[in-house]
Computed example of a mutant assay.
Amino acid sequence: MTDRPRILRPSRRLLLGAALAAPALRAFPARAAGEVIVRTPGGTYDDVMRRHVYDPFTKETGIEVRPVAATSAKLLAMFRANNVELDLIDTGDGQLLTLERMGALAPIAYDKWRWSKPEDITAEVKNQYRVANFVYCTVLGYNKEHFAGGAPDSWADFWNAGKFPGPRMLSDMASGSANLEFALLADGVPKDKLYPLDVDRALKAMDRIRPQIRRFWDTGALSAQMLSDKEVVAGSIWNGRLQVLIDRKAPLAYTWNEHMIQVQALGIFKDAKNIAGAQLLADYMLQPEVQAKYSRDLIYGPTNTKAFPLLSEEERARAPGGERSRQTGFYQNVTWWEDNRDRVNRIWSRWLQR
């Protein structure tokens, strides 16, 4: 991609969020000299990145790294108010695509990388204005005890409540996107023919399984709790959330068949006060040795292909984006979702109220 992205008008959803978030622009404390401020998801994620990325980066470069929490609305509000207080943005690929289309991001300086090699980054997640630092996926998880006689191994199986009975869950739009892809797979659409999504067909398929859906989850924590508490016996769930429960000896499992690969990516504000430091940190974060360490702890998949050999066989087997994952799963088309999110939100809201 060589052309600068065209400037699009932001959606009403983002404009409203930006207006609500605008007063929060004064929330960040004063910036230290030689500091890179990074938007992150927070929580345990910050602990992992501090250990494997931020502190080693500071030791090597002398540049301090300060992670902060910021919603998508706040990121947009910063840019619109010409008051950018962040340098590097670590967030979902769709949110970065929205900012890219508004002209808010600087190109990733691949030609200046000194720790990572651009050619080693998986092609599907390497773009001019954003680059993935890991991938995760949504899988079909289930309770092994409930399905001791045979578990669902596809979304068609999940939709077959007669053969595989029990309460279920799927994601709500509030989680980022509804599981329309899985509805279409259950309805016979091949995974390489999913996009553009046939929303009407997906919702007709949803009609068939809706009586068995206990709840449409809106957070990863809720999906994990429902499956752990046996409120549901099967459903869509992020692999990292489920793997934590499995590692704690919960009687849960999942199939890699027809999982959806999703992307967490890095972007750099074009008006950032420390663009050079942000570019350096992105480069440092994506080198194979570093990626292998934080991917291992987060239970997600590296995007540098040279990181996979640094993982154990067991770690590679459960990492999204690897060889098996690419054969049995599919990448979510974030461009389609960002192009159609407002429309799908309206349709989904009406469908839920029926």
Rank of each mutant, 00 (worst) to 15 (best):
M1T: 13
R9S: 14
G17I: 01
A19M: 11
P23D: 10
L25M: 10
R26Q: 12
A33H: 13
V36L: 00
R39P: 05
Y45C: 03
D46I: 05
D47A: 15
R50A: 10
R51M: 02
E60D: 12
V65S: 09
A73F: 01
M78Y: 00
M78L: 07
N82G: 12
N83G: 02
E85D: 08
D87N: 03
Q95S: 15
T98I: 15
R101L: 09
M102R: 07
Y110P: 00
K112H: 13
W113C: 09
W113H: 08
Q128P: 04
Y129A: 06
V139A: 08
Y142I: 04
E145Q: 14
G149K: 07
P152V: 05
A156P: 03
L170W: 07
S171A: 12
D172L: 07
G176I: 02
S177T: 11
E181A: 10
E181D: 09
E181W: 10
F182L: 11
G188F: 05
V199A: 00
R201H: 08
A202T: 00
K204C: 03
A205Q: 13
F216P: 01
A221M: 10
D229N: 08
E231A: 15
V232G: 01
G240M: 10
R241D: 15
V244W: 03
L245H: 00
D247R: 10
R248D: 14
R248W: 06
K249G: 08
T255F: 04
W256Y: 01
N257T: 15
F269K: 01
I275F: 05
A278T: 02
A282N: 11
D283T: 00
M285E: 03
D297W: 05
L298S: 10
I299F: 15
Y300V: 15
N304I: 03
A307R: 06
L311R: 00
S312A: 03
A317R: 06
R318T: 11
A319Q: 03
E323H: 03
R324M: 05
S325I: 00
R326I: 13
Q327L: 13
G329Q: 02
Q332P: 05
W336E: 13
D342H: 11
L352H: 03
Q353S: 14
